[in-house]
Amino acid sequence: MAFSRLPLIGLKANDFRHPLDREATEALKQLPGLDLIVRQLLGSVGEQFFYLDNIASSVLVGDRQLPELYQLLVEACQVLDLELPQMYVRQHPIPNAYTFAMRGKQPFLVLHTSLIELLEPAEIQAVIAHELGHLKCEHGVYLTLANLIVLAAGQLSPWGAILAQGLQSQILEWLRCAEFTCDRAALLATQNPRVVSSVLMKLAGGSPSLSPHLNLDAFLEQARAYDKSSSTDLGILLKEAQTGQLTHPLPVLRAREIDRWSSSKDYESLLQKKGKMGYDGETEVTGEWRNW
């Protein structure tokens, strides 16, 4: 099946950064002692450990290795006007994807096999583009710190654990806000809000056997209902208690945000402005979906 989307020539992170991401990033920059905390965490766990562990335990995707997935990565990078990172596939029963951007090394993405089995090709590309959004927005240091806290909290020295615990709440708040921005990157790459919302629906309640039977319109209605029910003072308190220790916003909230932004003038004008910069009447990103 052929498809085409305009590459967003000259796209900048601030063109699509979510307002909550801006606020949380500025708050994190003001946090005293962040450099010390980073050194403590990286000194006891080490970025290098995760990098080497990933190479040893995953499969590097390329034009000769899982070329269908590699093509999805190439196309997403073209649309988002971003240099190509490495991408790995890792055997894991929990559907997930994550990004590491380490000092002096090429950044890389990781997709779990269970995620790939759950999603259609267009949805996989939305996930890839979401991860590329972290790179586009240069979330690197904070994102690596968040990943280290989440993945390695039990391996920290006592001093590092105390520092991590003190930082965890603010880091997680920043990470949840950054996820809203990266969902926008997924939308810009796929240019189809239903694809992005479908990913969120399947992550909330899908499985390889159930996914074909899920109703996206019903899920979007569910997202709007959640929004209304949490608009009271009690609802706001319960929502904060529900999300305070999460690394990602709730799927229904993410679907609601994408639903809103996809119908906004900001989104439409961004596509028109950046798409036309490199459009000569013939430009398209081409590829072919294959059956997996």
Results as ranks from 00 to 15, higher is better:
Gly205Ile: 00
Gly205Trp: 01
Gly206Ser: 05
Gly206Arg: 08
Gly206Trp: 06
Gly206Ala: 09
Ser207Met: 11
Pro208Thr: 07
Ser209Ile: 12
Ser209Leu: 13
Ser209Arg: 13
Leu210Val: 13
Leu210Arg: 15
Ser211His: 08
Ser211Trp: 01
Ser211Met: 02
Ser211Pro: 03
Ser211Ile: 01
Ser211Ala: 15
Pro212Ser: 03
His213Thr: 14
His213Lys: 14
Leu214Phe: 06
Leu214Thr: 03
Asn215Asp: 15
Asn215Tyr: 02
Asn215Gly: 03
Asn215Glu: 11
Asn215Pro: 01
Leu216Ala: 03
Leu216Asp: 06
Leu216Thr: 05
Leu216Lys: 00
Ala218Thr: 12
Ala218Pro: 01
Ala218Ser: 14
Phe219Gly: 06
Phe219Ile: 07
Phe219Arg: 10
Phe219Pro: 00
Phe219Val: 10
Leu220Lys: 06
Leu220Pro: 02
Glu221Asn: 13
Glu221Tyr: 01
Glu221Pro: 01
Gln222Arg: 12
Ala223Thr: 05
Ala223Asn: 04
Ala225Leu: 15
Ala225Lys: 11
Ala225Asn: 02
Ala225Phe: 06
Tyr226Phe: 12
Tyr226Ser: 10
Asp227Ile: 01
Asp227Arg: 14
Asp227Ala: 11
Asp227Gln: 15
Asp227Thr: 05
Lys228Phe: 05
Ser229Glu: 12
Ser229Lys: 10
Ser229Met: 07
Ser229Cys: 02
Ser229Gln: 15
Ser229Pro: 00
Ser229Arg: 11
Ser230Pro: 00
Ser231Trp: 02
Ser231Cys: 04
Thr232Asp: 07
Thr232Cys: 06
Thr232Leu: 04
Thr232Val: 03
Asp233Val: 10
Asp233Phe: 04
Asp233His: 06
Leu234Gln: 11
Gly235Pro: 07
Ile236Cys: 00
Ile236Arg: 15
Ile236Ala: 14
Leu237Ile: 08
Leu238Asn: 10
Leu238Val: 12
Lys239Met: 10
Lys239Phe: 09
Glu240His: 13
Glu240Lys: 15
Glu240Ala: 15
Ala241Asn: 13
Ala241Lys: 12
Ala241Gln: 14
Gln242Cys: 01
Gln242Trp: 11
